[in-house]
Write a protein that binds this DNA or RNA. Sequence first.
RNA 1: GGCCCGUUGGUCAAGCGGUCUAAGACAUCGGCCUUUCACGCCGGUAACAAGGGUUCGAAUCCCUUACGGGUCACCA
Length: 489
Amino acid sequence: MGDIRVRFAPSPTGSLHIGGARTALFNWLFARRQNGTFVLRIEDTDLDRSTAESARGIVSALRWLGLDWDEGPEIGGDYGPYFQSQRLAHYVEAANKLLEQGQAYYCYCTQEELSERRQEAMKSGQAPRYDGRCRHLTKEERTRLEQDGRRPALRFHIPPSGETVVSDVIRGEVAFAHDVLDDFIIMKSNGLPAYNFACVVDDSSMRISHVLRAEEHLSNTPRQILIYQALGRLLPVFVHLPMILAPDRSKLSKRHGATSVQEFQEQGFLPEGLLNYLALLGWSPEGEEEIMPLPEIVRQFTLDRVGKTAAIYDTKKLTWMNGHYLNENVLDGVVNQALPFLQQKGMVAKELSPSQQEYIKRVVELVRTRVKTLAEIADASDYFFSDDFAYEEKGLRKHFSKPGVDSLLEAALHRIERLESFEPQAIEESYRDLSADLGVGAGEIIHPTRLALSGRTMGPGLFELMSVLGKTRSLQRLSRAVQYIRQQA
RNA sequence: GGCCCGUUGGUCAAGCGGUCUAAGACAUCGGCCUUUCACGCCGGUAACAAGGGUUCGAAUCCCUUACGGGUCACCA
């Protein structure tokens, strides 16, 4: 048994969406678990839709996720190049071989003619298959067609009878009768290979041992197997992963909100959360624990625990899981990840002094326990970075409209003014004392204080909040609130 | 439409002929904790698509139907 080699082979025609990310993840997990090699190959043979920008986007999304590849773009490898557009010689060689063997032939039909016939077939309820009319063109006919300016594509000749059985790790043996397959194009008239051909040529020349890809490719597989056989190459093991569907059970697309990895990143999700969640879509661990850091998933990952039913992704669970990692990850890391979100909202400067960094760290530590994404850290902490905030409507009604709150706040102000230590514990003691001295419940003072300091009715523990905010700012905000209330009255 | 795959609670998902009066997680609903919110903890609601077989016994095997998805491109 040779080495385990798997590959993720996206086409750079858009961003990496979560379905692709999940496929990449499973390939990566399998490679890491089996001590195999994970190859990244860019399938950029569609001239019209492929862009270098998409390729860069996919590469950086994979990097952000932390799915590192052993061979591929930016790092090379022994089986390169890793862009199909640079592998033309391989395809031409294989195509010539098929041509010589009589298993491929030139087809001069134009795309317009083809699609017209397809339409007609559909209309009359027939299967839209290529009729094989160019299969037996004579040399003279071909010359004439070429003189007409037609550039031929190359088609693979499907053996007329029999069937091809796909042996799939997830789905077992799946048979396809040859008469439902038609002669498909392997080299386009522009000289570039078509998917089913390029894919086989590359997988076999790159020594790919296991092909893990989405189930949508299952019905392409008999065609590919026929190519492997015609070329005399060894078959890889096929593993067709269940699809990931949008919440309405349809195929994932842009109109379903965030579906690209980049969008999840921008919404403040962490790679750990996304990866852990994605791993659970189609695969399940043996035990009951679902929160699993990547190394643990690698340790447990086996193909026999991959399911066969399509999954609908659920942002709620993803969010919950993200919240977990937001709290469990090392604080300094989370601070660094949160920084861009704070900066983007103009809450903190690009350049930070050590003391500002320390302040931000304390804020993040306080706030992260009650939010689930990095973006929410920014939402929940604005008042730490600006004195200019409004009092919540609900808070105004509940806490600032009671008679006597102004003096209560004033009393609190005078108490903490005398404090030498501004640690949470010291502040809390003085509040407890005050409430006892005045004979009012602690909540009577605490709630209005929170509103005075943050403008909100909910948030971190009040005494921690005050401590982080600092004595000076706390006093300022308290006295501002007293003034505000008196003005309203 | 042809071919292929699939169908366990709202969602993910365990289950691979008896231990299933069907696990766990998210969500949801109650309760506890608490200065608020969140966390955490405790508890509740909620599922084997339908019908036929096979078998002493089926969520698990077979068939049919229904539903969902995929695919039938000079896209991957």
